[in-house]
Amino acid sequence: MDLYQELILEHSKRPVNAGLREPFDAQVHHVNTTCGDEVTLRVSVQDGRVRDVSYDAIGCSISVAAASILAEEVTGETVSESLRTYEAMKAMLTSRGTDPGDEDVIGDGVALSGVAKYPARVKCALLPWSAYTAALTEAEVLGTTDLQTVPASGGNS
């Protein structure tokens, strides 16, 4: 199966920049209510540029790898560049497999393209991104209208 590419397993076993660090401008805690996966994520923004993303992700390989790739990609980008990365990730993940992803924009994120074929797993990959955009909003780097936020997770039992 093409879901568990070596790159995904590598990111999930050794997540890039994992752990919570200071200083930070905002911290958020997001939960995937269907499975209990959690991510605590902090952002630090300086002069319009993402200085640091630090996080503690507890969850499946997909959600941990997604957090790792997020940290790798957006750190050092300007906030608007990071939002482009987010939009490109989201477009690929919600494409049901029709959008293979652009490595120039989302880097290792292309390894998550297999997730798009499994609707139940898309939420896992988007969890850290929803935390990231919420943290930017909370840090007042973004207004609430600057992005279309990831839809809240659906039904739960």
């Binding site: 199966m1 879901l3 969850g59 499946c60 390989s61 997909i62 499994y118 797993r121």
Partner: peptide
Amino acid sequence: GVHPHDVGQILDD
């Protein structure tokens, strides 16, 4: 060391 989501996904495959 393996999350249940991943176990379920591999079984589903």
